[in-house]
Structures are given as structure tokens and as C-alpha cells.
Write a protein that binds this DNA or RNA. Structure first.
Length: 465
RNA sequence: GGCCUCGUGGCGGAGUGGUUACGCGCCGGACUGCAAAUCCGUUUACCCCGGUUCGAUUCCGGGCGAGGCCUCCA
């Protein structure tokens, strides 16, 4: 890397940007809250997957050993409801949607995390943690439930910056009678015979939401991890509760040193919600748009800012990729592989500055411009290596340029051989100065959605968009 | 009501106490048989009102506006 700048990240816990130094540079740990698998992932679910994928790529450049865990929540009441509706076991639902999630995120260029723990594989660890919490006086059993006693934790509220009284004043849900304190939350709840459940010291039941992440982090990563990520909507109550449980179970050891939260995705200026009916599923988007363009649209804004998803924005992203791939196509005569050493300092510094992907993209465009004007073969080879290397850090530009322009990832299907034949016929006509015929063929190609580009090295083509 | 974000040019979106962000779009020019791509150039910015300052889009205060969270999962 051509920079001495350290990685700084905005830590939600301290509400400021801090230089990131891992507790153990030989083993950097990151955990991100993954999907609850009862339905297709929407674009809001895709944002953290993409954002933390970029962070994971960066961390892996900086440190020799990074363990990135992203969980699968496969026991939850919505899953139970979906399974009952369809008359199947919850595993049928969760396996199906976990597979779809992996495939859809793969389309967005999201790498598979190093560990992908499932909640149902960690029930024993959850029970162990609850027993420790009870023994330490931070949790109690009541009517088949296990509850975390919020007043027992003086530090509760550090992450979301709210105190217990505020929360109770704002509570809009009736307090269950078995709670010792209105702020207490459920770690374990009883299951009816029809509901899925596991035997526990408190009877047959199932975990509450927050305990799973605490248990999986402890099991796979350790007591204190370097980075915990997720959507801003999870900051409270989910992360606050997770943090409290883990700290209390670990004698005060912090759960995570850095907490990172990505902003929300709105749809055409409106909140995405089922009632508005504007929930955009990744599964549907990738049917008509290259996943790479969706990824770019998500990275075109800073991860902490709210992102307004629009059809026009997605179109712009496709155009941006046209430009980048256009530069790569222009470099098709030079042989270069993605090289991280070739990446300019400004690009690294953008990413190192709290993952400033918009700035990093600007540097990518600077490389594209340089590539379009440079004539020196050695420099062009360097530029190509830099373009591919930078793209790789962002999870972009992994396609072959010709593939991109041939419509990779779009619904359009073009017969390349037919196109080539027509181009040859047109060029013959051009050579004969029969421009009328040449234009007729070009129009015919345009009908098929093919755009012609005459260059010094011959004629190339692309799927028109 | 409490806590917290944000308000940049036609659009998306960085950043900064005084210097071109970048991309998309538009317009003009070069190139081209004509286009497309590419290159060159132009174009429109920092919500409002105070304050600090030699100077604020950038810092502080107030206002207006948009959004998020406020517990057992919508």
C-alpha cells in the first residue's frame, strides 16, 4: 500500500471517528448481523452485506488473519409463522431462504463470510450464557421465560445513549406482569407444543432475539471482538441488549471495541415498508439489472448516510459502470492483472478514511480518465492493474469488459455471432462507401438493442441501455 | 415528548475556514461518411437568520424542513 495513513472508523459507541487498532493484529475479528431467513432479502438488507463486505476486503488487505462472521437467524417468530402457514418445518423455510440469500448476495459481489453461524446451532451456548447471567444476578427466570434485568447493569444504554427512564417513558407496549422491571427484555421464552423449542433448565422454549448474537460471537470469535456491524435500526434495542448481555456475562469485558452502523435505505424518498408496498427485493432487481450496478448504487453514497434508492440512481450506476468498463475495454491490448501495489494512495486513503467509497469511486474515475488519454504502453499497463485492483477492493470490475457490454447480468440476450456477421457486412458496405446500406445495418442492429462503436482498432458493440 | 442523523448545482453524491470533488444529464467544440465511444470546454451549489472571523458552504446559536430509533421484532 502506498500510504502511511491508518484506518479510521466512526465508532457508534464513542460517536466519533477513531483510529482502528485491532486488539490482536494476528487475528482481527468482525461480526455483522445477518438476515432472518423467512423471506427474500430486500435492498435494505443488501446494504450492510455490501458495506461490510468492502470493510472485510479492506481488513484482509491490512491484516494477515481476519475472521469475518455474519450470522443467519434461523429461529424467530416470523419464521415460525411462515412455516405454519406453509405447513412445513421451520428448517424448510430457513434453508430455502438462506440459500436464496447467499445466491442473491453473491450476485452483488458479496464474498462468503469466513463464518456463517446459525442460531439453532448455538442453543447450548445460549443456555450456558443465560445460566451465567442468572448466577451473576443479571437475569432471572419467570414463568418459563428468562429475562435480562436491566437495572442490574449500571452501564446499560451506553451504545444508544438513552437511559432507562427515557425508555420507559417512551414505551408503547404494555409491560408483561412477570417482568421485575419494565425495561427488562426476554432472553428465552417458552414454546407451546406446536412451536419449535429446545429443552432448557427453564422448560422447553426458544431464544429471544438478542441472546443468539451474543452466544455466537462468544462461540466463534471470543469475548471481545474488534468490530461489530449492522444496520442503524439495530442499534437499539438489539445491539444495546447484545452488548449488555455479553458484558455482564463476561465480567465487564466489552463485547466489541468498534460498533459500526450503516444508514437506512429509503425508496424514492419514502420509507420502505410493506404497508406502502415499496419493498424492493434483491431477487427481483437482479432479474433486470446487473448485480454489479446494484452494488455500485449502494457504494455510491457513504455507508453512514441514508441512501435514497431510485430507479434513476440505478440507471446512473449502470452508466458509471459503462464508463469504467469502457476504459478497460480501451486497455484490452495490454495485459495486466489486478495489482494492489498499483492502486494510487488517494484511493487507499479514501477507503481508510471511514470507508469513504464515494471518494474512492472518484479515484477510480480518475484512473479511467487517465487510461483513456494515456498512450505509453507501460503506463497503460499500470493503469489497468490499478483499475482492476481498485475495483477489486470495492468488489467491482470483476467482469470482462466485453462481457459487460454484451449485456452480462441483464435480461437481454444477444447472439454475438449474428452481431459480428452484421458488423462485418456493415464494414464491407462502409468500405464500398455504401453508407446507406451501412446505416441500414446499423439501424437493424439498434432494433436488436445493439449499439455500434467504430474505433481505430475496428468496430465494437454493446447492448444499448 | 426523549435521543439522534441530515439539508450541497437538473440528478446522485464527497469534501473543505480562503483552491476543479467525482459521476450521470444538458450544451458547445474536436474526432467520425454520419453516429457511438473518447477527448477538450461550458453550465447550474452549498435551506434561512444571526454570531465568531480578514474571510464560512465549512465553526457556534436559533429557525425552518426531511428522516431514523424510543424494548421482547413491524
Amino acid at each position: 500500500m502506498k500510504t502511511e495513513k491508518p484506518l479510521s472508523l466512526y465508532n457508534s459507541l464513542t460517536r466519533r471517528k477513531e483510529v482502528f487498532v485491532p486488539a490482536d493484529p494476528q487475528r482481527v475479528t468482525m461480526y455483522v448481523c445477518g438476515p432472518t431467513v423467512y423471506n427474500f432479502a430486500h435492498i435494505g438488507n443488501a446494504r450492510p452485506a455490501v458495506v461490510f463486505d468492502v470493510l472485510a476486503r479492506l481488513l484482509k488487505r491490512l491484516y494477515p488473519h481476519v475472521v469475518y462472521a455474519r450470522n443467519i437467524t434461523d429461529i424467530e417468530d416470523k419464521i415460525i409463522a411462515a412455516a405454519r402457514e406453509q405447513g412445513v418445518e421451520i428448517g424448510v423455510i430457513t434453508d430455502k431462504y438462506a440459500d436464496i440469500y447467499r445466491k442473491d448476495m453473491g450476485e452483488l459481489g458479496v464474498m462468503v463470510p469466513d463464518v456463517e453461524p446459525k442460531a439453532t446451532d448455538s442453543i447450548a451456548e445460549m443456555i450456558s450464557m443465560m445460566e451465567r447471567l442468572i448466577a451473576a444476578g443479571h437475569a432471572y427466570a419467570a414463568e418459563g421465560h428468562v429475562l435480562f434485568n436491566v437495572p442490574s447493569d449500571a452501564a446499560y444504554g451506553v451504545l444508544s445513549g438513552r437511559d432507562r427512564d427515557d425508555m420507559i417513558a417512551g414505551a408503547r407496549v404494555e409491560v408483561a406482569p412477570y417482568k421485575k422491571d419494565a425495561a427488562d427484555f426476554v432472553l428465552w421464552k417458552p414454546s407451546t407444543p406446536e412451536q419449535p423449542g429446545w429443552d432448557s433448565p427453564w422448560g422447553r422454549g426458544r431464544p429471544g432475539w438478542h441472546i443468539e448474537c451474543s452466544a455466537m460471537i462468544e462461540k466463534h470469535l471470543g469475548e471481545t471482538i474488534d468490530i461489530h456491524g449492522g444496520g442503524i435500526d439495530l442499534q437499539f434495542p438489539h445491539h444495546e441488549n447484545e452488548l449488555a448481555q455479553s458484558r455482564c456475562a463476561h465480567g465487564g469485558a466489552a463485547l466489541a471495541r468498534f460498533w459500526l452502523h450503516n444508514g437506512f435505505v429509503n425508496i424514492e424518498k419514502e420509507k420502505m415498508s410493506k404497508s406502502i408496498g415499496n419493498v424492493l427485493l434483491v431477487h427481483d432487481l437482479i432479474k433486470e439489472t446487473p448485480g454489479e450496478a446494484i452494488r455500485l448504487a449502494l457504494l455510491n453514497g457513504h455507508y453512514r448516510q441514508p441512501l435514497d434508492w431510485t430507479a434513476e440512481g440505478l440507471t446512473q450506476s449502470v452508466r458509471m459502470l459503462d464508463r469504467l468498463y469502457g476504459a478497460l475495454r480501451g486497455l484490452s491490448d495490454v495485459k495486466s492483472e489486478a495489482t494492489h501495489d498499483a492502486i494510487p494512495a488517494a484511493f487507499w486513503e479514501a477507503l481508510l478514511d471511514d470507508l469513504n467509497t464515494p471518494k474512492a469511486l472518484a479515484e477510480l474515475f480518475a484512473l479511467a480518465k487517465a487510461a483513456n488519454t494515456e498512450t505509453d504502453p507501460g503506463t497503460r499497463a499500470q493503469l489497468k492493474a490499478a483499475l482492476l485492483g481498485s475495483g477489486q477492493m470495492l468488489g467491482l470490475l470483476a467482469h470482462d469488459a466485453e462481457e459487460w457490454f454484451a449485456g452480462a447480468g441483464t435480461a437481454t440476450h444477444i447472439e454475438a455471432e449474428e452481431v459480428e456477421a452484421l458488423i462485418a457486412a456493415r464494414n464491407a458496405a462502409r468500405k464500398a462507401k455504401d453508407f446507406k446500406e451501412a446505416d441500414r445495418i446499423r439501424d437493424a442492429l439498434a432494433e436488436k438493442g445493439v449499439q455500434i462503436e467504430d474505433g481505430p482498432q475496428g468496430t465494437s458493440w454493446r447492448v444499448a441501455s
